[in-house]
């Protein structure tokens, strides 16, 4: 009950902030930015395993959101909306990166290998770096499901719509990915093969 009321309060606050933002309120802009900046950076780091890319993605998402604010219409949770934008942009960035990798244009740096830059926006804690490294070992679909569910607070139904798959597939990706993460973080690596997926269903 208390969680429901808190959630309702968040939704109402978001609607109010979006309404103020559409009227050009700078306070609303700062409030939304401060409210969701950390969550989106965390999500982007978990999805991309690369701090620089995560920073760029979150910055782009905010710029696009603020730029389109006069036409924006909030239908659900603002956090879910922004998290979906981050996931889409990370997916596009990964696709571009794979293309560049094929032609050998750049080297990929992981979160662990990055040194702190002078203009760094997000400095990840050790826990976050470990989690991102473990997530990087999952398939991208599993990573996306876990990150969007646990960090983006999306419902499985919304993730299924985003990925364009049935909800059962999303659930199996979630369970399988979570099991793999547990094994990785406990120091054991197991394979999540087809038989495991069918068992989890």
């Amino acid at each position: 009950m208390a969680i429901g009321i808190r959630r309702l309060g968040v939704v109402l606050e978001d609607r109010y902030l979006v309404w103020r933002l559409k009227q050009g309120s700078r306070d609303a802009l700062c409030r939304i930015y401060g409210k969701y900046r950390d969550d989106l950076l965390r999500l982007a780091v978990s999805l991309s395993n690369e701090t620089t890319l995560a920073e760029d993605v979150v910055q782009d998402v905010f710029v696009a959101f603020i730029g389109d604010a006069p036409q924006f219409r909030l239908t659900g949770s603002l956090k879910s909306y922004l998290a979906t934008c981050v996931a889409n942009r990370v997916r596009n960035a990964n696709r571009d990166r794979r293309r560049r990798e094929q032609v050998g244009l750049d080297e990929i740096q992981s979160v662990a290998s990055e040194s702190v830059r002078p203009d760094q926006w997000a400095i990840c804690s050790e826990e976050l770096e470990r989690a991102a490294r473990a997530m990087a070992l999952l398939s991208y679909e599993q990573r996306e499901v876990i990150a969007l569910r646990l960090q983006g607070a999306l419902k499985f139904r919304q993730i299924a719509e985003l990925q364009g798959v049935p909800i059962k597939t999303v659930l199996s990706r979630y369970r399988c990915g979570l099991g793999k993460l547990r094994s990785l973080l406990n120091g054991e690596v197991i394979r999540c093969d087809r038989s495991e997926i069918s068992r989890s269903l």
Partner: peptide, 29 residues
């Protein structure tokens, strides 16, 4: 994974620059 232990610290310099950029974008839009 629900964020409690996954801390992220924000670099103030770039944070300020991004916020300025967002304000500019808001003024333009």
């Amino acid at each position: 994974f629900k964020q409690a232990n996954l801390q992220v610290t924000i670099g103030a310099e770039r944070d300020g620059r991004i916020l300025d950029e967002l304000v500019e974008v808001q003024c333009k839009s």
